[in-house]
Write a protein that binds this DNA or RNA. Structure first.
Length: 501
RNA sequence: UGGCCUAUGGUGUAACGGUAGCACAACAGAUUUUGGUUCUGUUUGUCUAGGUUCGAAUCCUGGUAGGCCAACCA
């Protein structure tokens, strides 16, 4: 928003609960935001304001608008009523201001046990908004805080920290998700009674993407129960997961801009995100050849032992990306599904007696299919047209299909991790009766241990995005070692042939 | 037996009370040494019933549908 409108953004952590805040989370959130390309003006913490917040609490007590309650958690919950029935006043609601002041100070001094007392706002136990039924403002927690250490043993609740922190920072637009709508009434009430800067809260609907989940709690479950390999598993819809998968940050931002924000329930098609990923990658990715499921081809009329270097463009969308040399020889690999013995109509790929072009190389014709005892195809024997070399083709032959290939002798063997959607249901978390994990896709990860790639990829880097021609976009995975390179499928190319079938 | 939020093509989102638009998806065609990219074209929409108004997606009322609210979580 602050890119579109004048103003700036603060990054504030509402670290009001010492038992759930970890420095580790703070650092990874900061890293994610930076990677996405956003900047914040100030890095702030609600815990910076604990002294001020304490003073605010005293102000409320002095105004007779807050009281110390000795009731247990269960009792408070009971007296709260339900959305359709009114609540009951706490017996401690009528304590004198002096007694409240004394008790609250002793709470702060650590004289009482965890959970034994709370500070509550005095509003209305019959209010139709449950949040307004004397909400808890402060609770006792004798816990170590990652920033304030052991200074405090009482901590403010979210509702007594968020709006007040906004106000202290003179925030004009405090943006949050829809489930906080009922909190706004309390947000406004506290600001009004405290007579502090009137920040305003605005809510919008959380964005949901189909075939995935967004709930932090559920994502944590997948990590803890080892359904995925950590928060940055490339199948995870986390920023770190998308990063490892190879999604460009710009694609994510374009996606967010395009889907906009609203206030209604929504389920955006994952295909739209993938569109923006392809759009970015098509522009920047280096084209290389990789054969995922190799089938050996022997070019019988090509001299044995000969290797020639053929020039191939790195990126047709960006000629300044230059060219590279690709070795060609008598034995090559092609994709197993680029050959069919009995092809359907309109099959442009290789078939017995048929001709195809090898990308950046020659036109070949399939003469013979070699099979093993079980009838599996083990090898193709072809002949090439010597005068059909890419760029200087004088053969006059026109072919419909172009295949990618890799020269067998120079091929590098790498591991490729192919990803499919994590869930088989468009809205896995949207079933009341069925656990979302029921819909986990057992084939969401498929490891290809021996993929043949051209030697150019020996120098692959994390910063370079690659298109394996006719297959998809791939990114180098941090699990790679010098012995074994590992690539993640970022997203496949659109495949209108597969769709036709 | 309450309060609050929301309803526009398949999806997401626009439209001072004045021609319902954009993107994706789908479909058809052209180009292509990636069945990719690019280009051209086509289909599909204001939840419902009233009301206000010269005129309503927009304002009002009722209905219907979906969502949120009963942590010492945020």
């Amino acid at each position: 928003m602050t890119k579109k409108f004048p103003g700036y953004t603060n990054l504030r952590f509402d670290d009001t609960n010492p038992t759930t805040e970890e420095t580790e989370y703070v650092e990874s959130i900061k890293k994610d935001i930076q990677w996405l390309g956003f900047k914040w003006e100030h890095e702030l913490y609600a815990s910076d304001y604990f002294d001020t917040l304490y003073q605010y609490a005293l102000t409320l007590i002095e105004k007779g608008l807050a009281y110390v309650d000795d009731s247990s958690s269960e009792t408070i919950a009971e007296m709260k009523g339900t959305p359709t029935t009114v609540g009951k006043n706490s017996p401690y609601r009528t304590r004198s201001i002096e007694e409240n002041l004394d008790l609250f100070e002793r709470m702060k001094n650590g004289e009482f046990a965890d959970g034994s007392r709370t500070l509550r706002a005095k509003i209305d136990m019959a209010h139709p908004n449950m949040l307004m039924r004397d909400p808890i403002l402060y609770r006792i927690k004798k816990a170590h805080h990652h920033r304030t250490g052991d200074k405090w043993c009482i901590y403010p609740m979210y509702d007594f920290a968020h709006g007040q922190s906004d106000s202290i920072e003179h925030i004009t637009h405090s943006i949050c998700t829809l489930e906080f709508v009922p909190h706004r009434e309390l947000y406004d009430w506290l600001i009004e009674k405290l007579e502090i800067y009137p920040s305003h809260q605005y809510e919008f609907a959380r964005r949901n993407v189909n075939y995935t989940i967004t709930s932090k709690r559920k994502l944590l479950q997948l990590v803890n129960e080892k359904y995925v390999n950590g928060w940055d598993d490339p199948r995870m819809p986390t920023v770190s997961g998308m990063r490892r998968r190879g999604y460009p940050p710009m694609a994510i931002r374009n996606f967010c801009d395009r889907i906009g924000i609203g206030k209604r329930e929504n389920l955006v098609e994952i295909g739209l995100l993938e569109f923006f990923v392809r759009e970015e990658l098509n522009r920047e990715a280096h084209r290389v050849m990789a054969v995922l499921d190799p089938l050996k081809v022997v070019i019988t009329n090509y001299p044995e032992g000969k290797t020639e270097m053929l020039e191939s463009e790195n990126n047709p969308e960006m000629p300044e990306a230059g060219t590279r040399e690709v070795p060609f020889s008598r034995e090559i690999f092609i994709e197993r599904d680029d050959f069919m013995e009995n092809p359907p109509k309109k099959y442009f790929r290789l078939q017995p007696g048929g001709m195809v072009r090898l990308k950046s190389a020659y036109i070949i014709q399939c003469d013979e299919v070699v099979k093993d005892a079980e009838g599996n195809i083990t090898e193709l024997r072809c002949t090439y047209l010597p005068n059909s070399k890419s760029g200087s083709d004088t053969s006059g032959v026109k072919v419909k299909g172009t295949l990618h290939w890799v020269s067998a002798a120079q091929a590098l063997s790498v591991e490729v991790r192919m990803y499919d959607r994590l869930f088989s249901d468009p809205d896995p978390a949207g079933h009341d009766e069925v656990d979302f994990k029921t819909f986990l896709n057992p084939d969401s990860l498929q490891v290809l241990p021996d993929v043949k790639v051209e030697p150019y990829l020996a120098n692959a880097t994390f910063d370079t995005k690659y298109q394996f021609i006719r297959k998809g976009y791939f990114a180098l995975d941090p699990d790679s070692s010098s012995e074994k390179l590992i690539f993640n499928l970022t997203v496949g190319l659109k495949d209108s042939w597969a769709k036709q079938q």
